[in-house]
Simulated assay, not measured.
Amino acid sequence: MEIRLLTPADARNYWTLRLEALKNHPEAFLASYEESVTKENAVEQTAQNLTAEGNFTFGAFDQDKLIGVVTLLQEERKKIRHRANIFAMYVTPSRRGVGAGKALMTAAIQKAKDISGVEQINLNVTASNHSAKQLYTQLGFQEFGLEKNALKIDGVYYDDAYMVLHLKR
């Protein structure tokens, strides 16, 4: 398995995996499949996002096939530039349990440590996603809050757990 930063050349494969994630796990993402699948110029916009300053999207590849992704985004505003956020973490179901998620998160954490001034990484995760929460806890993240009814999908509410990793400098 190879972990590397994605480039604009990976945009189409990223978008395909992103739509899979939104379809399979709507409770795990703010964006919806229905909104995303009709988005104009989605691949082109994705390619631009992959080169945006402070935006680092890592991919896990198994024999050149993209099987997982995670994005690390540094905050831009002066008072919160010491923070970075994890977004869009996903591993395709057939490849879960082989360490791709841990490898992706480890790469994102290392990148955050390499960015001057970043002192903590924040993320939120569906509170009922115990395997993801367990992974994040193993990597040093601590839960600091819970938002009840954060998402509502087809009349069902989902809570979000907020987690933070304080980087040791």
Rank of each mutant, 00 (worst) to 15 (best):
A108I: 05
I109N: 11
I109H: 03
I109A: 07
Q110V: 05
Q110I: 01
Q110A: 13
Q110E: 15
Q110N: 15
K111F: 00
K113Q: 15
D114M: 10
D114Q: 15
D114C: 00
D114L: 04
I115L: 15
S116Q: 14
S116H: 11
G117Y: 05
G117N: 07
G117E: 09
G117I: 02
V118A: 05
V118S: 07
V118M: 07
V118E: 10
E119T: 04
E119G: 14
Q120D: 14
Q120N: 13
Q120T: 01
I121S: 11
I121W: 04
I121H: 11
I121K: 09
N122S: 07
N122C: 10
N122Q: 14
L123R: 12
L123I: 12
L123C: 11
N124V: 00
N124Y: 13
N124H: 12
N124M: 12
V125C: 10
V125S: 06
V125Q: 08
V125I: 10
V125W: 04
V125P: 06
T126V: 09
T126K: 07
A127P: 03
S128Q: 12
S128M: 05
N129S: 11
H130I: 10
H130Q: 15
H130F: 09
S131K: 12
S131E: 14
S131V: 13
A132W: 02
A132D: 06
A132C: 11
K133G: 04
K133P: 00
Q134W: 05
Q134I: 01
Q134G: 13
L135W: 06
L135R: 01
Y136H: 04
Y136K: 03
Y136L: 08
Y136I: 03
T137R: 12
T137S: 13
Q138S: 15
L139I: 02
L139Y: 01
G140E: 11
G140Q: 12
G140F: 10
G140W: 02
G140P: 08
G140M: 09
G140V: 09
F141I: 01
F141Y: 08
F141W: 03
F141K: 03
Q142V: 09
Q142A: 10
Q142G: 00
Q142R: 13
Q142F: 01
E143D: 09
E143L: 10
E143M: 11
F144A: 05
F144I: 11
F144Q: 10
F144V: 05
F144Y: 15
G145N: 12
G145R: 07
G145I: 08
L146N: 12
L146W: 03
E147C: 02
E147A: 12
E147M: 12
K148P: 01
N149P: 01
N149I: 00
A150Y: 07
A150M: 02
L151Y: 00
L151G: 03
L151E: 04
K152F: 00
K152V: 09
K152Y: 03
K152I: 04
K152S: 06
K152G: 00
I153S: 12
I153C: 06
I153D: 02
